[in-house]
Amino acid sequence: MNTVLAKFLESNKKAILQQWLDCALALFPEKMGYSTPVAMVLSGALEKILSGLGKSENDCQEALDDVTRILAVQNFPPSKALSIFLEPKLILRDIMMKTTVAGTLTQEVQEAFNSRFDRLTLEAFDSYMRHREKIYQLKVEEGSRRMYMALRRTEA
């Protein structure tokens, strides 16, 4: 299954990636431009995630972190932010509908793809939450940095 999926992803990578990136950028108020640092980081990370998918040992934690690190501080709710991990499934269906019979994947492979993305969504949720917690941790740390000398005195 992995080889079939890998092959399929390889040949459709560009199209999937483009659509996926568009979805991600469109989360932002007035669709984030391609030539922005945010778009650059997202496109790099999404590509890493996608190319890691077909491989058996897939460790895309770092890329996942890069994506959620950006999403976790944006002005939209988590449900919207994480929705981008649901998009690939729709994109895949979309592509399947447009390709010829020969190019389609078996149901088994499709389901493998989908379940892989389900798992990825949950992993992304973990990662997103880690970054949210980091924000609160930063607030606490900043408070104590600011009061550094006072805290030192009370400790002494």
């Binding site: 030539s35 922005t36 640092p37 650059m40 980081v41 496109s43 790099g44």
Partner: peptide, 11 residues
Amino acid sequence: TKAELHKDSNL
């Protein structure tokens, strides 16, 4: 200026 991605994938 305009932000762009270079070959070495650096912005």
